[in-house]
Design a protein around this nucleic acid. Structure first.
Lengths: 148, 148
DNA sequence: CTTCAATGATTCAAGCTCGAAGCAAATGTG
DNA sequence: CACATTTGCTTCGAGCTTGAATCATTGAAG
């Protein structure tokens, strides 16, 4: 019986992973139409305003060192700039360039068409949202506890 | 209003990604106690019996070329063997070695302790399961349509 | 049987990701 | 103030992942 339960958890993990994969694929497809890689697109998408690398890492659910890598490329493309942080000389503020702002808008526009999860009704989405939040907050992995 | 809706979808994608990340972290932690990497552990876990590379790729939600890479390492560790497929000379059958079988059992045992999603009740898990299946099957990304 | 498209696996290059180590700046403690 | 600790970012090495190209085998169509 306990066997069956753990089997169910395993299957559930597989489904979460598969859906995450689908989402990534969708972002990657949209990104390529703008000559961006998937990781670059994710960074651009999450850059809703000026923020530090650390904050962007949190939003991207990845390590700060990874943000350094991706932002390097975005900077090379003149889409993002690293500016000194107003209150903390260690930190840097990532800000979109004019060009970056435009590309980001194009990206957001393409991201909404044929997006995964569109098949779910608004109610189902809300349900899924709640379950995910609960799962994440109850998860015994305290690496990055979710806000709120 | 449509703006708000797409915003909700975005947040939902973020949550899916974050949960997937938590799950990966857990597997990685368990793997390291057995001197395995996370990817190796996932492959070992999904190798429920003899199967082709393609089948394993499907179970791991990754590309077959990736399986080649990971299985190379597992073979180097003498955990998995590539045997000729009985009916198709193109294909290879991946089978656990004696040692691999043992390591896999140890892995499965460690995977069940402190697993994410444990915080959810059985009912919630079932609910989540159904929502995920629906989301995946309705997803407009037809790369790997789920069975059943 | 012959041919051709599809399939299974692999190789390779390019890019992503993490964790450890390092440095500079900030914060806390005496 | 002096010092240790923490925090923000970066660098680097190792490993993962993908997609395109390749090769052998298979299955289907003529």
């Amino acid at each position: 019986m306990a066997k069956v339960r753990s089997e169910a958890v395993r299957e559930l993990c597989g489904l979460v992973n598969e859906l995450a994969q689908r989402i990534s694929d969708h972002v990657g497809t949209c990104a390529s139409t703008l000559d961006l890689t998937e990781a670059q697109a994710v960074a651009l998408r999450e850059l809703t305003g000026p923020m530090t690398s650390r904050e962007l890492a949190r939003r991207m659910s990845c390590e700060p060192s990874n943000v350094t890598y991706v932002v390097d490329r975005l900077a090379r493309l003149d889409l993002v700039e690293r500016q000194p942080h107003p209150h903390d000389r260690r930190a840097k503020q990532l800000v979109l360039t004019e060009c970056g702002t435009k590309v980001r808008e194009d990206l957001l526009a393409t991201l909404v068409v044929d997006s995964p999860l569109e098949g779910l009704t608004a109610g189902e989405q809300r349900q899924l949202h709640d379950l995910l939040v609960r799962a994440i907050n109850d998860s015994p992995n305290p690496k990055t506890r979710t806000r709120q």
